[in-house]
Amino acid sequence: MNIFRFFGDLSHLASIFILIHKITTTRSCRGISFKTQALYVTVFVTRYLDLFTSYVSLYNTVMKIFFIASSCYILYLMRVRYRPTNDPSIDTFRLEYLVGPCVVLALIFNYGYNPTELLWSFSIFLESVAILPQLFMLQRTGEAETITTHYLAALGAYRALYIPNWIYRYFSEGYVDPISVTAGLVQTGLYLDFFYVYFTKVLQGQKFELPA
């Protein structure tokens, strides 16, 4: 554990609290992609199956349980409690274009041909693209509520902080996980456009609006 990873994980936690806060205070999940949230549940469930097989630390266990539980809670909020505010007609990204290639990549790149490792690898690849339906929706509508952009910024910061974490681990432990690093760099790259608008508009007090 180093400060980059720790603050990365805190940023991830913050993003989830911001999202739940947005949905419950506005009593609306407008602007949030259900598909992206469903992908995150898939990511957490497939990756954290090792909860039952290997123990790393109390921190690790508590965080895993929190991520699974909170992502399921968000799906409940979107599908049940605030269902009328969820508009599937603008959440049109085709999931098979994401899930299919991730299955293939996991079968090619993994650390062992057993269910746990294959699902772990699948979850890493899937997480790297899980934000795409959300970004696609943002692109389509061309605008976002400020609170939604804070959610995305916290999520992007979490990914960005994992990069110095890997650099630190490479020098301090000689540890490199090529699958995590490659998928992580791709994932962080997907946020670059968003971050540009976030820094130049939202943090200057303007509304998040994309040029027409």
Binding site: R5, D9, H12, R47, D50, S54, V56, S57, N60, M63, K64, F67, Y111, G112, W120, Y162, N165, D177, S180
Partner: peptide, 10 residues
């Protein structure tokens, strides 16, 4: 080898 390694990152 990466076999039997633990995935300690979240």
């Amino acid at each position: 080898s990466h076999e039997h390694r633990e995935h300690d990152e979240l």
